[in-house]
Design a protein around this nucleic acid. Sequence first.
DNA 1: ATCATATGTAAAGCTTACTTAACATAAAGA
DNA 2: TCTTTATGTTAAGTAAGCTTTACATATGAT
Lengths: 65, 65
Amino acid sequence: MKNRLKVLRAERDWTQADLAEALEVSRQTVNAIETGKYDPSLPLAFKIARLFEKQIEEIFEDEQE
Amino acid sequence: MKNRLKVLRAERDWTQADLAEALEVSRQTVNAIETGKYDPSLPLAFKIARLFEKQIEEIFEDEQE
DNA sequence: ATCATATGTAAAGCTTACTTAACATAAAGA
DNA sequence: TCTTTATGTTAAGTAAGCTTTACATATGAT
């Protein structure tokens, strides 16, 4: 699952720590999602979408087989 | 997290087992999601949305504090 | 050269999302 | 009445998402 977190974050000039705080998760979680270590849970994906005022599909792209 | 799975399924006259097969998950997983035991993972949410040709936000409603 | 900041990564532990197998119940049909 | 189908639920196990703590490295500012 690809995502545009890094770009959205850069547009706002936020650090991973800033984003983590806004999402109420750890910085490591933000980093892990950005670097593709794992996908966020659905509730966290909603929180991310709400924060950036976008649809989940505008932020995450499901690459399925 | 509320969801409209049961309704979408009813509109198509599908059983939980039918839906589970279409999603390639167990029937228990579909049941657990419908009965609110837990939320699907983000990849599964994408698969559900794709199957019903809807946005994730049209199927799942995040109820946050 | 030192210091602070941003990012990446890893380990250990907990919680949540899944699995299979199994059993209970209700409704519908033969 | 007996059987089948749909749904709900439980138990035990594995996998994935998250936490805190810690360390490494790179960059930029002083």
